[in-house]
Design a protein around this nucleic acid. Structure first.
Lengths: 142, 142
DNA sequence: TTAATTGCAAACCATTTGCGCCAGC
DNA sequence: GCTGGCGCAAATGGTTTGCAATTAA
C-alpha cells in the first residue's frame, strides 16, 4: 500500500472500518513523526492533540494499522515495540548502539543476495529483517 | 568464547560465579538441544532431570549465560525469547513462516556487504541480525 | 563461615480484553 | 438504529525480584 494523506479513507473501503477522530489523530501523529515511535510516545502525542485518546485505543489502532500494512513494527529494544509508518520504499536499519540512533539504508545487492540464499535452500523469500549494530568509526573502542 | 563441555568452569574463573547443580543441568539441556529453546521448554527439560529447578532460576541462568556470551537470545515470535547456545561459527536464520522451522545459514558475501554499508555511513559494524522469512518454493501462494 | 544462589510467591509492565456507553454511517 | 469503536479498569502472561533458606567454596 502507498502512503497518502488519506490512507484512512482507503482503509475504510477495505472493510467495516470507521474513520474515527481517534484514528485520524493517531494517523496524523504517525505522519508527522519521522522517527520510530513506541505506543507510549504515540499516546503522549495523541493526547496533546485531544486528551480523549486512551492508550488502549492506541494499541488497538496500531494493530489495525499493522494488519493493514500502514505501519511496520520493530523490536529493536526487546521489551518495547516501535512503529514506523510504511514509506514509499523498503529499507533496513543501522543502529548506533552508543545512543540508539537509527539510520535507514537500502542496498540492492543485499536484497538480491537474500533472495538467492532463500532459493538455494528451496524457499521463496517473503520478507526479511536486517539490522546492523554499530558504533561511530571515530569512537575507538577497538 | 568457544563452546566447550566445561564452559561452566571457564565461566567461574571470570567472576564470583559458582558451579551449581542447577546451572550444570541447564547447561546440559542447552548442549543437548540443537534447536532454539524458550525458557518454558528449557525449564521443562531441566525439571525432567531434576524437578528441583525453578523457572526463576532458568530465567536468571539464561541472563547469566547471555551476559557471558554462552547463549544468544532471539525474538523470532515477538512475545517469547528463544535461546541458542553459541556455536563455533556465526550464522543467520531463515524462517519458514508456514511452520516456524528455522534453518541456519552463513554467507560471507552478505557479511562483507554489511561491513561495507556500515563503513559507508561512518560506522563500525559490531553485530547484526538477519532473518529471512520464507515459504517453501513448492508452495505456490504466489 | 559467608556470600552467592535458589525457590517461592508477589511484583512488574507491556499489551490485551470484557463491558457498558458512545458515535460513525 | 445498528454496529463498530472507545474509555476504563481488570486480566494476561512473560519476566523480574524480595526474601528467607540453602549451598558452593
Amino acid at each position: 500500500m502507498r502512503m497518502t494523506d488519506n490512507f484512512l479513507e482507503e482503509l475504510c473501503k477495505k472493510g467495516n472500518i470507521r474513520v474515527t477522530s481517534q484514528r485520524k489523530i493517531i494517523a496524523s501523529v504517525l505522519l508527522k513523526a519521522k522517527e520510530h515511535l513506541d505506543v507510549e510516545e504515540i499516546h503522549k502525542r495523541a493526547k496533546a492533540i485531544d486528551s480523549n485518546v486512551s492508550i488502549a485505543t492506541v494499541y488497538r489502532t496500531m494493530k489495525l494499522f499493522e494488519d493493514n500494512a500502514i505501519v511496520t513494527a520493530h523490536n529493536f529494544s526487546e521489551d518495547r515495540t516501535y512503529y514506523e509508518i510504511v514509506s514509499k520504499e523498503h529499507h533496513d536499519h543501522l543502529i548506533n548502539i552508543e545512543n540508539g540512533e537509527i539510520i535507514e539504508f537500502h542496498n540492492k545487492q543485499i536484497e538480491e543476495l537474500q533472495k538467492r540464499i532463500a532459493e538455494k535452500h528451496g524457499y521463496k523469500l517473503i520478507g526479511h529483517k536486517l539490522e546492523l549494530y554499530c558504533i561511530p568509526k571515530s569512537t575507538n573502542h577497538n
